[in-house]
Structure formats: structure tokens, C-alpha cells
Design a binder for these strands. Structure first.
Lengths: 348, 348
DNA sequence: ATGAAAGCGCTAACAT
DNA sequence: ATGTTAGCGCTTTCAT
């Protein structure tokens, strides 16, 4: 295939039109001040006429530096990640970068293949989600870093290797925050409903932080795992089963808002008074949280901001002749650690 | 920047390790059967040892054919589009393609810039959302198409230019479907709440289809525009104002589920019986639709499937030596027109 | 079955 | 301020 009838316009075409060499056109495009105003005008006209669009591949190959940023996230369809990608995309676009995106479906093996595929593009930077990767992935990332490619891990409070950047928050601390909130409201019999996604390490860390803190505060706590599939339906189902089988916990925290809303809807249907009989606490503060059941108490995570910060961090890597410097001290102003906030609404 | 200490491994490195020329390695990678089994083993070992990752830019430049697909959508954070991207991404990955993504924020001017940027990458195919573009965008797309790049428009029932493919559905017909549903349920006093996003052409087409059909069926109908911003809050606000000022319509259709759910939540809070006093109908069938207020009636749109189909269509463009053929007849089996389905639940 | 030569479209480095 | 030369890492084409 690809039997183009109309060949694409090249620098040489433009140069011919303008009566100069390709170098002059190339210079005009990148450092217009280095070309005489008169020639510049001719070049500009030629660019207009020919509707030239520079071939990025050729440029990258020749210059050894790309404007493409590769990002791998667990799931594009999850609102927290799609918002992060939107933030990342917005900042990158503003600075003339392009975004290549892959979705791992929470599979580290799939992520490994994607890292390999991405590296073939020699991207300007590599953006990953979380600090958990296969040993071989880590090996590849390390090699990429050694070859000068910045590596960032999003959504976590530490990186897999010290040389990688990270922008996110401490999920165990977030879990602790949730437990503390319950205890401060006087609830003594707690429960945490963890994500049904086995590889959602961050949700599990929140679960751990929650349990540990509850125990430290001398409060009873249990833990349950939601079913996979539609999380709203799973939350509903879970509460239904809970009501049928055992005494209800006084307060339940969820791995995400979707699960919490499912449980809340079921509680409303079953006439369980929230929060009088049972308190509910979500995680994520998704757009509907404030609107439902008098307002779902939850933890606000700066999804869009994480994306933005990652984008800004990557952009900062470009400036300054020494990558090391710009990547270490130059990026000091950007916070690596963000702080989720507990939003106390009606359900707790 | 980009002062790599460890240079990346090239074909030449691998060839040296294996004691062959670069051509043999290159052949082994693409057409392994053309290389003798004995040599193949040596090459394979060298590839292992060196951990070679092929440089895509160089390959594309030399061969003139890329494995990158460029897609532009209005908003990554909107669930319908993020699911579409997930479907697209899943299919593309399965076939060894990579995805470059941009988000236009519903701005045709921004889209135009993004098309230009994308074209610099000489992608294998261009994927756009909808059939509305600036004249200059159209011009560029036409040029890309003429140069052999497949162009697909998603989410619409026709394409901007006849030579472009399109995979989606007729939004006016979807609007009609909504009006017909209301009328068939015996509701006579209708209302359509349109999207607050000015450039959401598809929502406006649904509004038109709705109004026209209602009138054709001899039924009263009005139209309103939601505020922009959080659509759930907007839906709530809208219903609140409606209750305060005028006689309520018997049935309200919304441009999307988020708006409908907002209104539904407000109706519940105000003790307006749904659907006895007022029927509500959403659009999109987002994950929460089935769970809220006894089940929100809505129109299911095949978001993920649209993405998949687009991906499959693009993949099909690769096979067959004649692009024309594979793009026209070879893709006949793929449906260009999908059909949204009315899901009748509790609220209508 | 393998190799040698040429070149994809651009830019870095060195003239002039 | 502009041009010349060489080469980025790969594939195509044409030998052998």
C-alpha cells in the first residue's frame, strides 16, 4: 500500500522555490534570526506556497532529539487517568510536544511490551504510572534513562529507581487519612472495601494504610474486596450481601467513588440512614460525588494536576544545556509530592 | 540536553556481534525465512545479547511507512471519548500500531493546529472526531489522503469529504428515536436539554432530530441549553430553575446522561415523581445509568465499539498491495453506520 | 542466502 | 549570512 500519487513536499522543494539551499530554509524554520530579513521573506513565501510540513522523523534522526512524550497508563477509560492524560496533554501541547499513549490494562507484562515499543520511538521522555514494573521493564527504563531519556512515574510517592522522577502522593497516608476521619467522627467499627482489580497496587496500599491506622487508634476494622466489573454495580451488590449476612459496620471506606456510590444507592434503597446508621467514604471526588445522596464524603485526588505537573516536569527537562541540572535542581520548584484532601460532605 | 553517556544500540552493533552485515539482521527482523537457519541463530543470539530495540524513525524514513496512528478527539476526560480511545488503542496495539493522541477541547482551530502537528509525523492513518473541520483542516486532510494516508472520521454518519471513511451513527436519527420513545409512552409535552458546549455539533443534531420528530408527531416541544461546567450540577440547576418558573414539561430528554442524572437527583430531592409526574431520558448509557433512581432510561451508544471499528478499519488498510482496494472493498465488511439503542428503564 | 551501494529528509559542524 | 559536506539508522534495490 501507500502508493502516494502526490508526493509529500520536502525541504528541497521549498528551497528550490525560494532559490536558496535547504540549510537556509532549515535555519529559517528553527532560528529565523540567523537568516537575513530579505531571504527570510522569500523563504516564508515559499513555505506558504508549498504548504510545507516538516518531516519529524527526519528531523529527529538527524538531530537526535524528539518532541514526542510516551505515556503508559493502566486504563484510559478510568476517569482519574483520563483526566491525568488530559492534563498531561494540555501542557505538552502548549510547549510543542506530542503525546503517544498506551494503556496497559493494569498488566505489568503488557506494560513491559509497551515500554519496548515506546522505546523504539526514542521519545523525549517516558511517563509511567506507579512504581511497580517487571524486572525487565525496570532494566529497559534504566537503560533509557542512562541514554538520556527522562523517566517519570505518576501517582505514587516514590519511584521504582532513585534516578526516576515521581509525581503523586502517598497512598498509605491517604488510607490513614480516611481511617482518621472516621475515628475523629466517633465511628469505632470500620470496614475498607478494596478494589477488585488485583494489580491496582495503589488501592491496596490505601487499604493497608487504613487498616494499620485504625488498629493504631484502637478501633475495630475489617477488609473486603469488591468484585471486578462495573464498580457501581459491585458497590451495590456488596452492600446488599453485607446487609443479608452480618451486623453492619458503622462506617465503610471504599477504594473509589464508584464503589461508594453503588453502596450509597443501595443504602438509600434499603432505607439505611446514611450517615446516622452507616457512614460511607469514597475516594477520588469524581464529578458526581458532590451531587449524590446529599453529597458523598470522599478524598479529592488532584488527577488533572498530576498530569499537568508531569507535563511541566518533562518540559523543564528540555531547557538548560545540562540535562542533569535541569532534571534535578531545575525541577525543584515542582512538587513531587501532592496531597489528597478529605472532603467531608453528608455521608460521613 | 540529551547528552547520552550510553549510546543506543544500532543495527550495526548487532551485525558486528553476529559477524554479518546490517542487511542480514534487518532481514532476520522482518522476513526471517529469507535468512539461513544457521545465520538466523547467530543473529538471534546477538539480538538477545545487545538488547537491541529498532529505531522506528530510521525505519519509517527509509521505508516510507509508519506504524503510528494519529487521533484527535474533543476531550479525553469525557467518558464516551475515553472509551472510544480505549477501544481504538486496544485494537491498534494488537496489530503492532502505536497511538498518538491529541485533544482539541472542541475547538476547530486547535484541531487544525493538531492536524498540522500530526502530519509532521507522517502517520499511517489519521483519525478525527466528527465531520466538522475548518476549511484549512479539510485542505490538509485532503492532501494527506491524496498522499496515501487513510483518513477516518468517528462518531458521525457521514464524512466531511466523500473519500474519507466514517464510523458512527446518525445523531439526528438518535434524537428522533428519543422523541418517538416519549410519544410512544404517551407523553405530549416534551423538552430537550441541549449540551452547553457550543461546538458539540453532534448534540445539537440530536436536538434538531428530537424537535423535528416531535413536531411531525404533533407533539409540543421546547428546547433549552444547559450551562457549561460540571454537567451533573448543570442538570440539577436546570431542573431547579424549571420548577421555580414555569409549568413542568411532561418529559425531558437530555444531551447526555450526566445532565439527566443531575436532573433526576434534583427531582428526587424535590419529591417529583419520576416518571409519573415527569419522565427523564438520558443519552450515552454511562456506567451509572442503570444504577440510579431505579434505572435511568437512556440511549446506549457503542463508544468502545466505535473505537474498535476504527482501529480495525485502519488495520485493514495495511493489508493488500493496493491501498484503494483495501480501503474501499476490503473494508466493506466493517459497518460504517452503527445504531444507538434506546434502553427503557425506570425514568420514562 | 548474503552483501554493497544508495538514499529516505533532515540537521550538525564546518567552511566561506 | 549562506553554502557544503557528512551522516543520523535504517531499508530498498540491485548485485553476487
Amino acid at each position: 500500500m501507500r502508493n502516494q500519487n502526490q508526493k509529500r513536499i520536502t525541504l528541497a522543494d521549498v528551497a528550490r522555490h525560494a532559490g536558496v539551499t535547504t540549510m537556509t530554509v532549515s535555519r529559517y524554520l528553527r532560528t529565523p534570526l540567523q537568516v537575513a530579513p530579505v531571504t527570510g521573506k522569500r523563504v516564508a513565501a515559499a513555505l506558504e506556497q508549498t504548504e510545507y510540513v516538516a518531516n519529524k522523523q527526519a528531523g529527529i534522526l538527524a538531530s537526535g532529539t524528539s518532541t514526542m512524550v510516551a505515556a503508559i497508563i493502566p486504563n484510559i477509560a478510568h476517569s482519574i487517568f483520563s483526566e491525568t492524560v488530559q492534563g498531561l496533554s494540555d501542557v505538552l501541547e502548549l510547549h510543542g510536544f506530542e503525546l503517544m499513549l498506551a494503556s496497559s490494562g493494569y498488566s505489568l507484562e503488557r506494560e513491559q511490551k509497551q515500554i519496548r515499543a515506546m522505546m523504539g520511538w526514542a521519545p523525549f521522555a517516558l511517563v509511567l504510572t506507579g512504581r511497580h514494573h517487571t524486572p525487565h521493564s525496570l532494566h529497559m527504563l534504566q537503560a533509557a534513562h542512562a541514554a538520556g531519556t527522562p523517566v517519570v512515574e505518576m501517582w505514587d510517592h516514590t519511584s521504582s529507581l532513585p534516578e526516576f522522577a515521581h509525581i503523586g502522593f502517598d497512598h498509605a497516608a491517604a488510607g490513614a487519612l480516611m481511617a482518621e476521619h472516621f475515628v475523629s467522627r466517633g465511628y469505632q467499627d470500620l470496614m475498607y472495601v478494596d478494589s477488585g482489580v488485583v494489580q491496582d497496587f495503589r488501592a491496596h496500599e490505601r487499604a493497608k494504610g487504613f487498616a494499620q491506622t485504625a488498629r493504631n487508634l484502637g478501633v475495630k476494622t475489617r477488609s473486603l474486596q469488591a468484585m471486578s466489573g462495573n464498580p457501581v454495580a459491585a458497590g451495590r451488590q456488596l452492600l446488599k450481601e453485607l446487609v443479608g449476612s452480618q451486623p453492619l459496620p458503622r462506617a465503610i471506606a471504599f477504594a473509589n467513588d464508584q464503589l461508594a456510590v453503588g453502596a450509597l444507592l443501595e443504602a438509600i434503597d434499603q432505607n439505611i440512614a446514611v450517615p446516622e446508621k452507616m457512614a460511607l467514604l469514597g475516594f477520588g471526588d469524581f464529578p458526581m460525588a458532590a451531587q449524590i445522596g446529599g453529597g458523598l464524603s470522599t478524598v479529592a485526588t488532584p488527577c488533572y494536576e498530576i498530569g499537568q505537573s508531569v507535563g511541566q516536569w518533562v518540559v523543564n527537562c528540555r531547557s538548560g544545556p545540562q540535562a542533569k541540572l535541569s532534571r534535578e535542581s531545575g525541577n525543584k520548584k515542582l512538587p513531587a509530592l501532592l496531597h489528597p484532601q478529605l472532603i467531608h460532605r453528608h455521608t460521613s
